[in-house]
Amino acid sequence: MTRSLVARTGTGLLILLYGLPFVWLVATSLKSDTEIFSATGLIFEPTIAAYQTVVNSDLLHACVNSAIIAAGTTLLTLVLATPAAYALARVKGLLVNVGLGSLILLQITPQPATLIPLYRVLGGWNLLGTQLGVVLADTALLLPFCVLIVRPFFLSVPQEVEEAGVVDGASRWRVFWQIVLPITLNGIATGATIIFFIAWGEFLYAITFLSDPAQYPISVLIAGQIGMYGIRWSNMMAIAVVASLPILAIYAFTHRLLRDGLALGSVR
């Protein structure tokens, strides 16, 4: 086989492997219950019955809750992570090793292991049952990851650029704010996108720390129903499609950023 034939076959396989699951997801959401049971594959009469059932004010409310939690988490994480990542890219020595080591240790701790201690901390602050509590927990979960993603972008800023600013008499803060940040905007946007996506899909903290269904994000609606007996798949898939739409919308604008930014973040 020639190289181009191998490449074409491989590309075709990859498109099937990564496209078909989403096509099937959407197709299932457009099926009636009888058609799901008769396993009709992709040839069927589409109906929007499932969407008529699931898209109501409760679901839209859950989407708003998700947006509040995910946007709040992204904002707070960036505010804390960006200066920390900058410092860890500029300072050298023991402090950096201790800092990076602790971040990695927190990063590899399984999420459920933090549930009980966090429950106690948030309870002590009367933040259980509030979305602010979930935002704080999500930020604690994602902050180490965000620092590790953004730091390589600061490392790639040449020192001379900053020294030029210092020579011109700018304060350290002005150098950071007006010279370094604009250059590293891609990295910060990469971090923001990833943090938003993960926070949008986070369900374990939300399901544990929230008690009022009116505050549930859409991820909790999905995770809470998935184990139930006699689950209606067309409805479930319709909710999953609705939950994916915001991600798809953001991804349409940021996929080039992610493509180039992720590789940078992990290799350094």
Partner: peptide, 29 residues
């Protein structure tokens, strides 16, 4: 193809998990 693949990486595990739970059902894909 790359954009399609990275999209499935970007989707939360929650949504991929729900999707595949049905795809692997005896009535699924």
């Amino acid at each position: 193809t790359l954009a399609l693949m990275v999209f499935s990486w970007a989707l939360p595990g929650l949504i991929n998990g729900v999707d595949w739970r049905f795809l692997l059902d005896p009535r699924g894909m």
